[in-house]
């Protein structure tokens, strides 16, 4: 029973999503279709992928503000590499993933060895990545490679106009892979341990430096993958793309029940957090009269509500824990 208590935030998030979906379906009968759900997955695939990486970072007690810029950089790099430099798309994908992973590893190493706060290091990384993408090009560059048209045509047709697109498949794979990695491997346990107590983790003989570097490497590599998906989705590269996505990702992670202070959280929660944000956006586009900024307002309110909810459950958990401590047999 004790172990189930920590699932409460994720269950609450899932309940909110389901309730929201039901409400939207009541307002718009067309809403409750497989097609809408599939579009939800496709439209938010890039956000879902970075949110998985962000979940690892936040559970370990860190933060990664650079992911939005890394996505922007990736799209520009891909457009240039494929269209200008003539690099085959698949090789360009591998190149950009290696670059991003190296970038994340460097940030992780600086955080670990220079003992700097992740906030500052990844903030610097954010400016750096965005600056480099501006340096590469300030224009929006279309990508016309065959692979791109092929990949965007390719989808699992589920009937009724519903298509499970490549971006959606990639995201689902990342979410499932992330769940396995976080919940079922030694590395995942180390991520939780770091968030619980960094000092204790080191004293328990865990290689904290290696874990820290790996966590930021993973986050940046997933941001790179997200950039690839984003470029597939838009068939272009633009240095101003994905501005502020790091904040959307953080919001999704927190809405998904992960504690910003680290130590607690689930990949699945972040996935639902992404879907909730997507749901709000879809509702607004169904409505047609609302300004799209209402999505931000709704997300903000939800964030407030979830943080308040987390504080409340934490408070209650502490109280029920403290009570029996005094009368230890």
């Amino acid at each position: 029973m004790r172990s189930l208590a920590r699932l409460t935030p994720v269950l609450a998030t899932t309940a909110v999503f389901l309730a929201g979906f039901v409400l939207c379906s009541l307002a718009y009968p067309n809403f409750a279709s497989l097609r809408v759900v599939m579009n939800l997955l496709t439209d938010n695939a890039f956000l879902g992928i970075v949110a998985v990486g962000m979940t690892f970072v936040i559970i370990s007690g860190g933060i990664d503000l650079s992911v939005g810029s890394v996505i922007g950089f990736t799209t520009v790099f891909l457009a240039l590499a494929i269209e200008r430099w003539g690099v085959p798309p698949l090789i360009a994908f591998v190149l950009v993933l290696v670059l991003c992973a190296g970038f994340g590893a460097a940030m992780g190493a600086i955080i670990q060895y220079a003992e700097l706060p992740p906030f500052i290091v990844t903030l610097a990384g954010m400016f750096l990545a965005r600056g480099v993408s501006f340096l590469l090009s300030t224009e929006s560059l279309p990508i016309t490679a065959d692979l791109y048209t092929h990949l965007s045509d390719h989808a699992l047709r589920l009937g009724g106009g519903a298509r499970l697109t490549v971006p959606a498949i990639v995201m689902l794979a990342v979410v499932i892979g992330g769940m396995v990695l976080l919940h079922l491997t030694r590395f995942g346990a180390n991520v939780y341990a770091l968030g619980g107590s960094r000092a204790a983790t080191g004293l328990m003989g865990i290689n904290v430096a290696r874990s820290t570097v790996l966590i930021y490497t993973l986050s940046s590599a997933l941001a790179g993958l997200s950039g690839i998906v984003f470029s597939l989705y838009t068939s272009s590269g633009y240095s101003l793309s994905a501005v502020g996505v790091e904040l959307d990702a953080i919001a999704a992670v927190v809405i998904g029940g992960t504690l910003l202070s680290g130590g607690y959280g689930f990949v699945f929660g972040s996935f639902i957090g992404v879907l909730i944000q997507g749901l709000i956006q879809t509702y607004i586009s169904f409505d047609g009269t609302l300004s799209s900024w209402w999505a931000k307002i709704a997300t903000g309110l939800l964030l407030f509500a979830f943080i308040a909810f987390q504080q409340l459950t934490l408070h209650l958990a502490r109280r029920s824990r403290r009570a029996p401590a005094g009368v230890r047999p």
Binding site: S3, R186, A189, N190, Y192, A193, G195, G196, S197, A200, T201, M204, G205, I206, G263, Y264
Partner: peptide, 13 residues
Amino acid sequence: APNLSVAQNLYLG
């Protein structure tokens, strides 16, 4: 690590 299970704490790493 206070947030991990007793078993994970015993066998972490």
